[in-house]
């Protein structure tokens, strides 16, 4: 292992290392711009009223056709221009990228990982050479998830005790791990390096320590690591160790 994840600079969004993270960032920037405009316009009109209409007689009006039209028009404008835009964009993003598990799983070279969350660490399981989960050559890691750059990664999440939430700030994704169900998350990294995995859902006193490292490797490096780790796993396999056999048959995505 090389250096630990580097700290971020400044107060903005953490630097984005994923293929699709820019979709989230673009929406965030769009919304930020839109609400800034709305806020400034309304605040300016208020301040104008405060300064200009401090004293002097008030206008006697319960609202005219024109002023009510102004309200309705402004609301309609925002509803279509901002909310509508967000809605349409997000529908596309979710169906094509963030929740599109079908094509992520089908993609060439896609990496499938099972993650079992528990108080307070993340256990990850790779299928090993046979491509199946729950077999002796499964590679199991703790608080250390490694993925290759440039291919989709699909993670199936489970939890053994309480609800956790897998959160990858540098890849702009997050998914709860819920006891009793399997949830999914997919992402694709584009810059090799080490990034942090966080737990976003309060999961007990040591929630703050539920940190893991995501290592994004070049494809060759990832292959080599997985092969070596698979060898080690086969040697270290202990059929008696029930605790280590938490893997499950991979659940193909059925919409």
């Amino acid at each position: 292992m090389t250096a630990a994840p580097l700290p971020e600079h400044g107060y903005g969004l953490p630097h984005d290392v994923s293929v699709d993270g820019f979709r989230v960032d673009e929406l965030i920037h769009f919304t930020l711009a839109a609400i800034t405009v709305i806020f400034v316009v309304v605040a300016a009109s208020l301040i104008w009223s405060f300064v200009k209409h401090r004293s002097g007689p008030a206008l006697y009006s319960h609202g005219t056709r024109g002023s009510i039209g102004l309200v309705v028009g402004a609301v309609a404008l925002v509803l279509v221009g901002v909310d509508g835009n967000l809605f349409i964009h997000t529908l596309g993003d979710m169906h094509q990228y963030f929740w599109n598990f079908k094509s992520a799983e089908a993609a060439q070279g896609a990496v499938l990982i099972e993650v079992n969350a528990h108080q307070w660490s993340w256990d990850a399981r790779y299928p090993g050479a046979d491509g199946r989960f729950g077999t002796p050559d499964d590679v199991i890691t703790t608080d250390d998830i490694r993925i290759p750059v440039g291919v989709p990664v699909v993670v199936q999440l489970a939890s053994t005790d309480v609800i956790h939430s897998l959160y990858l700030p540098n890849l702009r994704v997050k998914q709860d791990a819920v006891p009793g169900t399997i949830t999914r998350i997919t992402f694709q990294a584009k810059i090799p390096g080490e990034y942090e995995i966080a737990c976003a859902q309060h999961c007990g006193p040591n929630h703050y320590k539920m940190r893991a490292v995501l290592t994004v490797l070049a494809p060759d490096a990832f292959r080599n690591w997985l092969a070596d780790a698979g060898e080690d796993a086969r040697r270290a396999y202990d059929p008696e160790d029930k605790e280590a056999h938490w893997g499950w048959e991979w659940r193909r995505f059925e919409p």
Partner: peptide, 11 residues
């Protein structure tokens, strides 16, 4: 309110 941004901002 938006699922895309909530992916990042949730919790």
């Amino acid at each position: 309110a938006d699922i895309s941004m909530d992916l990042y901002l949730h919790d």
